[in-house]
Amino acid sequence: MTLLEIKGMNTYYGESHIIRDVDMSVKSGEMVCLIGRNGVGKTTLLKTLIGLLKPKSGEILFDGNSINRTAPHNRAKSGIAYVPQGREIIPYLTVEENLKLGMEALQGGLVKNKKIDTFIYELFPILKTFLNRKGGDLSGGQQQQLAIGRALLGQPKLLLLDEPTEGIQPNIVKDIESAVRRIINERGIGVLLVEQHLHFVRQADKYYAMQRGGIVASGPTKDLSKSVIENFLNV
């Protein structure tokens, strides 16, 4: 089932045209990877999907409904979770409070949901030991796990991940990869991943390659050729 469908989307920062006529789709249970060099517009695309930026034209369909006019907090409530580049942990809130904020996206928000689902500690055991620390005091890798855990606690249907392994120790990269894989298998959610790390890219089912804001290549990840990789990843 098609979960997310983007049709002819164009996004601008003021006068500068960033996203150009992008068509894209993500199915439930599918991991889709968006690749492209720095500055081509991958982050801009994800920001448009969560609603931080407004597209100038085109349509975003989520679960069959147009969400172009939906505010970000309502997109979150309808089942889109966003793990931004740079993680954006709320720095002076504790790890526990940060995790709870993820539950705002659930039906009834924090008023109706009070207990943190413990599966999150199975995925990322480190979070349980640091529950009372301030989010801003964690290391980069720990913050990334927190950001993903926080997103998953909202039980999203679609997870947007922006460079989750950027600047993170290799052993944590592995944990993150397997956590994402496991969630897709167990919950059947769709994932749109922006990634530079080849090993992680290879885990995806499908890829889209972006150049100067437009999609220039796409297909199953197993067909990803050496030349495409050299062209679109910063390796």
Partner: peptide, 18 residues
Amino acid sequence: MRIRAVTQNRSMSECLGI
């Protein structure tokens, strides 16, 4: 908690459903 979250990071709080 919502107020503290928005004070510290407005756009991320919005993306989380606040």
